[in-house]
Structure formats: structure tokens, C-alpha cells
Amino acid sequence: MKAMLIDATRCIGCRACQVACKEWNELPAEKTEFFAGKGYQNPRDLSSKTWTLITYNEIQIEDRFDWVFGKKQCFHCNEPACATACPVHALEKTPEGPVIYHADLCLGCRYCQLACPFLVPRFEWDKAIPEIRKCNMCPSRVAAGEEPACAKVCTTDAIVFGERDDLIMDAEDRIRRDPRNYVHHIYGKDEVGGTCVMHLSNVPFEELGFDTSLAAKALNKKSEVAMKPVPFVLAGLGLTLGAVSWIVNRRIENQQNQKVEDAS
């Protein structure tokens, strides 16, 4: 499975990735004013027009001041809640890794948005024919053996693209080689069942705006509990209802017969 490893210690906040994403995916610019977030951040957040966003985090840890850049985009979860949620497979986890979207199937129910723990899928609220929009890991590039646009342009190899297992080894290796410069955690290795976009950082991940409360279990396990019993419940209901109605109606009929007999 293909994946991306994003190393905040390497990222220089140049935003080449942010622009390349728009360029490759032909996304329009947003109208912004001054800066919408800390530092030079623009726009305010991911949106249907912005699939990846660099955040500028000014962090004071003890007496050391640090400016650390984070990258927001779809995590391409191994077991994506969005794809579990989607009633019609408009969101699909491909075996190669990317979680992709098929507009021609989509109902626009936005359940994927509710389900995604990372708040990634975005909806075109301003369109009469709206779509769900999000980073799709540039599937046409990946299919052609290329890396995603953002990884391709990354100036400092802060984004590396490759086999997920290799990347995890690479990440572990980086932490081992420079243990003082890294938080000893690969964000996305285990979160919500593992993701195909993983992050390394030199500051606690929550400082970069990552949700560190997410458990390792995939979210779809939560709904599976409710979905698994469906056939059993159906069978049980079928049997019970039939039986009950048989018994009850029989009794009523008997009673009525009784009445008739009594009357006669």
C-alpha cells in the first residue's frame, strides 16, 4: 500500500505543496485577506477548493522558540470512516492506498464529513450541483508510477511517498538516528487503524493541531457492532413475529370458536 510520510522537522513552510496541489487538481484560488491563521497561514482551513494546507505554529517550549509547520490533508486511512459511512461507495479505499471519490455515485448526504475523525471531506456549499472534495492522493499520478503532486514538488523531501511499510521503517530509523529531535511517535501509524499519510514532528503533535486522543482502533469497528447483527435480528424477528402472531391469533380464533360453540 502506498503512503506519504510528512516530516515536520524537514518542512520549511514554503507551501510549494499547497500550490502544486491546486495546480495539479485545477482548484481555484480562494479570496483571502491578510492572513487567516497564525503566521502566514492562508486560507483559514481546508475547503472544497483547498485540499492541503500548511499551518504555521509558533511554539514556545521552555526557553526555546520554534516555528513549526504542519500539513493538513486527507490521511487516507487504512480503514477510512468516510468510506464506511458512504452508503453508495462514492468514497472508496483503493488497494493502492488512496481513498478516492466518485462524484457520479455521491448522494451528497455528507455522512462522510460527519464520520471523518480528521474533518477532511469538504462539501461545495455554494454549488447547485455540489460535490465532496478532498485530497485524493493524486490517483492518476500514482497509477502512472508518479508521486503525488505535493510530494513531487516538496523542496526538502519533507513529504516522501512510497510503500507504507518502508515509510514506517524509514520513520523509525529517523527517530532512532536523531532521538532528541523527534517526538517518538509516528502519527498515523496506528491512529484509527493506521493511515496512509503519516507524520513525524519535533514538537508534541497537539501543538500542530493534530488530535492525539484518537484510539488505535478503526472507527468502522464502532459501527460494525451495530451492522453485524443485522441478519440475526432479521431472522429472529421473522421467526418471533410469525410465531407470536400464530400463537396469538390461534388463541383469539380458539376464543372466538369457543364463543361460537358456547353460543350455539
Binding site: V19, E23, A29, E30, K31, T32, F34, F35, Y40, N42
Partner: peptide, 26 residues
């Protein structure tokens, strides 16, 4: 300078994607 703009600006202040990143002088 900033990364997002080029010099006197003709080459970047005319590109919407770059204007999006740094829309105003600060």
C-alpha cells in the same frame, strides 16, 4: 521578501494561487 511573492510582484501578484497565500502587504 517572502517565498510566496517574486520581487516587484508582477510575476506573482498576477497569479491567483499566490495571491491567495499572501494577499496583502504586511
Amino acid at each position: 521578501r517572502v517565498s510566496e511573492h517574486w520581487q516587484a510582484g508582477a510575476m506573482t501578484r498576477n497569479l491567483p494561487w499566490l495571491c491567495e497565500l499572501v494577499p496583502d502587504v504586511f
